[in-house]
Design a protein around this nucleic acid. Structure first.
Lengths: 214, 214
DNA sequence: ACCTGAACACCGTTCAAGT
DNA sequence: ACCTGAACACCGTTCAAGT
């Protein structure tokens, strides 16, 4: 069938979805891509290594070369999630330009909540993975995502729109509301149509309650 | 305090660990008790119907008479969780007596966060179950728990300490911060020692940002 | 009414063996 | 270096059959 195996290999990485690309080729990224698809569509609990291997056209033992076990694959997925989140947060802040501090906070908040409500299962994987494994690359990926928020807090302090008493406390409270609203929305306790308005309202309360007393 | 039915159940639960109570006996509550134990100790993902049956001294097919499938057992567990939460919230409010509104809010907040951080896996089950099944008894149990919070909001409105503009929005924001702080804590992103102070700080910001403008 | 036990179709993980 | 395929010890669910 395949006489020019070497040529096939180089094409593999590009045309993952096509006919018979595997057996070797970039199995690792093919598995990750398929895993993200399954998780996004049916949730983490529906993910099966054997089905993944099948979908990608490889024997069930093959994934082991790239991911020692299921948990390792989930961690790799989590890293990808954090990287994508970081990009979306930074893009949102860039788009907000040099608007007022409150508007920039809301832009960041909206971007986070949009990301998390559109891919709830991925966010589950991201935080569940953080929970159990002290993986270095995962921790760094999460750190890059939170850096966007830390930077914004620094802005608020610089412009005096934030109480300088305990800036970290504001960051924590803000992230907590967002994460909580995501939980409510993904749990069906908050209508999807109301999420944007609710995010704006909640961050508003937090900002009002965090202004310097003077 | 204890109704007669509750008493009966407690007695069954006590003799569970002894010699040969099953084959008939209260298999349903024995399974639930054991499930709660396993979930609390090793998480939901470690729960196996077969192991549960084994632990309780019954064949693996037996649970089926009481719970059509695994999901049904988890829902029953969730109902128990909501009932217990309701009791703890009401107890906390009672203990706070007729203290100032802010203090009563903090008492409720503290009780919720304590419950959720002490039994993270149970809370997972509670909200995951709400997520997928439109089960009536589960929905009612969750409703009873949220009634405590709704009542408190009504108090704040009555005493004029809360902006009457949109009381539901305050309730949502409050519950969201709490749920978010629980996520952070359970995810290892917030040191357990700091949780109480952080809850007080965050609810404080929310209250300050929710007072009538006048 | 309640429980047993075989059966079915799945898992994740391991490991010799192939190329 | 990367992959296969048999093997092992588990699952959840179904269903005839027992008491």
């Amino acid at each position: 069938m395949l006489s020019t195996t070497t040529l096939a290999c180089t094409l593999v990485a590009v045309s993952e979805a096509s006919a018979r690309p595997y057996h070797h080729g970039n199995l690792r990224s093919a598995l990750l891509a398929q895993a993200e698809l399954v998780v996004g569509e049916h949730g983490v609990e529906a993910l099966s290594l054997r089905e993944l291997a099948r979908a990608v056209g490889v024997s069930h033992g093959a994934p082991r070369r790239h991911f020692p076990d299921k948990q390792a694959l989930l961690e790799a997925l989590a890293v990808e999630g954090f990287d994508r989140l970081t990009r979306e947060l930074e893009a949102a802040l860039q788009e907000a330009g040099d608007a007022a501090f409150a508007e920039r906070v809301e832009a960041l908040a909206g971007a986070y909540v949009r990301f998390a409500t559109r891919q709830p299962a991925l966010v589950d994987v991201m935080f569940a993975a953080k929970h159990r494994a002290p993986d270095a690359t995962l921790h760094e990926a999460a750190g890059r995502a939170s850096a966007a928020m830390q930077g914004l807090i620094a802005e608020g302090l610089a412009t005096g729109e934030l109480d300088a008493d305990d800036p970290q406390a504001f960051a924590t409270a803000l992230f907590a509301v967002l994460q909580g609203l995501v939980s409510l929305s993904n749990g069906g306790m908050l209508p999807a149509a109301e999420i944007d308005a609710t995010v704006a309202d909640a961050t508003g309360r937090l900002l009002r309650g965090s202004r310097p007393a003077a």
